[in-house]
Each structure stands twice: as C-alpha cells, then as structure tokens.
Design a protein around this nucleic acid. Structure first.
Lengths: 104, 104
DNA sequence: AAATCACATAAGCGCATGCTTATCTGTCTC
DNA sequence: GAGACAGATAAGCATGCGCTTATGTGATTT
C-alpha cells in the first residue's frame, strides 16, 4: 500500500524540507545538500524513502544523479484529500483559486 | 509547527483508519472502536494524537465524548498540497471535478 | 453513596526510525 | 589503471512510537 509510504515519508520534517527544496527545481544530491545540515548518507537514505513513496524520481547523469519531484505521489495525496472535500471550509480561497486554474 | 503533527498523525495506518471512519459521521470512542481490533487505551491515545494535529474535534456529551472531523487539519494539508499544484498531472479528473464543485 | 460505565492517563516494553561511521559501487579525469 | 568524486549500502546506536496492563477521573444509574 503506497498511500502509507507517502504519509510516512512526509511525516519526517527533514524529508519534507528535501522534497520542498526539490520542488523548486530538479537537482542532484550534492546540490540538494548545500545549505542543509545533513550528512551524505542521511540524504541518500531520505531520497530513497521519498523515491519509494513515489514522491521523487531519479535519473543518472554521468556520476551525478538528478532528482526531481514525481507527480504520482502528490496525486495520490490529492486523491486521498479529495474524499474529505465535504469537510473543507468554504472560505478556503486559496484552494478555490487553485481549482479555477486547473479548470482552464 | 502543526503541519508536522498532521503528517505524523496520518503516517499511522490505524490512525488513518480511525479518521476515515470518523469522516462517515461523528461518533463516540466506543462506537468508533466497534469492528476495529483495537484496545480502549490505544483508541484514546490515537484520538489524542489526531486531536493534537487539528484533524479531530471532541465534545463531551454526558459520559460519552463525541468525536468528529475537524476541517482545520484538512485545510492545512490542502494548502500544503496546493503549493505543488504545478506538478499535479493534468489528467487528474477527480480533482478537477472537486474544484468545479467548490467553485459554485 | 456504591456500583458501573466511558474514557484518560501512567508506566513499561518491543520494534521502527533516523542518525552516525565505515565501506562499497560506479563514473570521470589524468 | 590510479586517483578522485558522487552516491549507495552496511552496521550499530539512541530515540520515538504504538502497544499493553493497570489505574485514575468524571458522569450515570439504582
């Protein structure tokens, strides 16, 4: 069950930070590590978890590995969330705007 | 940081099951426990975590405590997710429908 | 007020998780 | 091919987490 791996992956703040940084644009593990106080093995392990959850894709480029956000994982969260749309407050302007954007 | 508590709360499959059951309608802890193989203290602890994450509200009713989904937590996930809308695949029909609904 | 019921809290335990250091694999450069 | 570099994997360790049993608290019933 991948849904479980997604939520578990995002439960760790360091992993969310990595994912969020990656969302600004694809980059390799070393670049990703810049500015973050995290060891190389730790980064590698986190990326592995994110990859297993379908939140991140990897692509070998010579001796670098380029990582980027994988839409699949995000889509699964969105679907999970959509089930509970009845509970979202009507005043959620940000989401409304989002939906308008998508509807075009 | 509550965002962290939300993701952590949802990372546990038992807790997601409780939340999902609660989404079908508010009920007290004992009713919630029916059909789920979970001890009374475990249920109480899970509900406490969900409450701390803003995913669930509680309301004393005599010697029962009625629990129900709290939209606040869901809204925060939705907002977090919305940041990454650029990555959502265009073919996400379910979400499109959802947005249309909300836009009315 | 005594017993019962719904639920919360406390304490302890086993296992998962995230980190560390050390080492391995694969690719590039010279 | 030897060294350097990017990254993965292994092993060990400390902490966190979810469970259990036991007990506490507040409300209801008789």
């Amino acid at each position: 069950m991948i849904e479980n791996e997604i939520f578990r992956a995002l439960a760790d703040p360091t992993r969310r930070a990595i994912f969020e940084k990656l969302a600004t644009g694809g980059m390799n593990a070393s670049t990703l590590r810049e500015g973050m106080e995290i060891s190389q093995p730790a980064m590698s392990q986190h990326l592995s978890v994110l990859r297993g959850a379908g939140l991140v894709r990897e692509e070998r480029q010579g001796r670098f590995v380029n990582y980027q956000v994988d839409p699949e994982g995000l889509a699964l969260i969105a679907q999970w969330l959509a089930i509970y749309r009845a509970y979202w407050p009507a005043r959620m302007e940000a989401l409304k705007v989002l939906l308008k954007d998508m509807d075009q």
